Simulated scan of single mutants.
Amino acid sequence: MKLKDLIQNVQDARLHFLATTSPLTDEQVIFKPSSENWCITEIVEHMVWAELGGINGIWKAIAGIKNKQPVWMGEAIHQGLSIEQIIQKTWREKEIVPENAKPSWGGPIDYWRASLLNNQNLLQLLSSALEGLNPEIVIYPHIISGPLNVYQRLEFLRFHLERHQKQIENIKAHPDFPQS
């Protein structure tokens, strides 16, 4: 797939994800099926932080290559694999969320929804930032999966949105989910 197509896939996944978060009442967005689960607002906040970390990593990798100081110089162990194959190889059933991606600020869901939408602008600018570079050699390691190139990072953003969309759908299907 081309870079433009992958960026569009992320945008489509983001819009589908956000559609599951609206319209909901204040009571619905803070509902937790158990004390171990995040509420919908916390999931959206997590998505903002996780995406910012991944997108910033791509930009750091681009700058590193352009400045002849790449952030990754190891073996591209996942070369040619889809993100689903990489996740299957590297993730456990329930992963521990890195500290920088945990929901911690709080605040209204509308703020987090707007923030998540704004992340797309950072992706749109990638095409020009990558001008003259092969996206397959621009690598920034994922905290769990290891070295991912730009294509795999973009696939991960789509995958991650879809994964957490299902989590929100499960919360909404919970028998104790508040009715509007």
Rank of each mutant, 00 (worst) to 15 (best):
Q120T: 01
W112I: 06
L125Q: 14
A19W: 04
K2M: 11
P103I: 11
N149C: 09
T21N: 05
E84Q: 13
I77C: 07
V138Y: 14
G64C: 00
P178T: 05
N9E: 06
L117S: 12
K89I: 08
G57W: 02
R14P: 04
V44Y: 04
M73I: 14
I58E: 02
S128E: 11
L6M: 13
L125K: 15
I168C: 06
W105Q: 07
N100S: 10
H174S: 06
G74T: 11
L81C: 04
K66H: 02
T90E: 15
H46F: 06
E42A: 09
V138N: 11
L6P: 01
N67S: 13
Q124V: 12
P23M: 08
W105R: 07
Y151K: 14
Q167V: 04
I96D: 08
L3M: 11
A129R: 14
Q79D: 04
I139V: 13
S82R: 12
E84M: 05
R113I: 12
N134L: 04
F159Q: 04
I30G: 01
E36D: 14
L148A: 03
D26C: 03
R14H: 12
R163M: 14
D176Y: 04
P147D: 11
I55E: 03
E162A: 05
W59K: 02
E155I: 05
T21Y: 06
V44E: 01
L15P: 00
Q88H: 13
E75V: 07
T41G: 08
I86N: 11
N37F: 03
A63M: 02
F31Y: 15
I62R: 01
N9C: 07
Q69S: 13
W59A: 01
N119A: 08
K172S: 01
Q85Y: 03
G132L: 08
A50C: 05
A19C: 04
I55V: 14
T25M: 02
S115Y: 04
E27I: 09
E99N: 10
V150L: 10
N134P: 07
Q11T: 13
K60Q: 11
G80L: 08
I144H: 10
N9D: 12
D26P: 03
E162H: 03
T41F: 01
L161I: 00
I77A: 14
N37I: 01
L122R: 15
E45K: 05
S22N: 09
M47G: 02
P98R: 09
C39E: 02
P98C: 01
A19D: 14
S127P: 07
C39R: 08
H160L: 09
E42T: 08
A114N: 14
S145K: 10
I62Y: 01
M1N: 13
A50P: 01
D12H: 10
G146L: 02
L52F: 14
S82V: 00
M73T: 15
N9K: 15
L130C: 02
E75D: 15
K4N: 09
S128H: 07
Q165S: 09
S127K: 02
N56I: 01
D5L: 09
D110G: 01
D5W: 02
V29I: 15
H174Q: 04
N170D: 13
E131T: 13
I87E: 06
A101I: 02
W38C: 10
L24V: 06
Q69Y: 00
P23L: 09
I55G: 03
M47E: 06
N149G: 05
I168K: 08
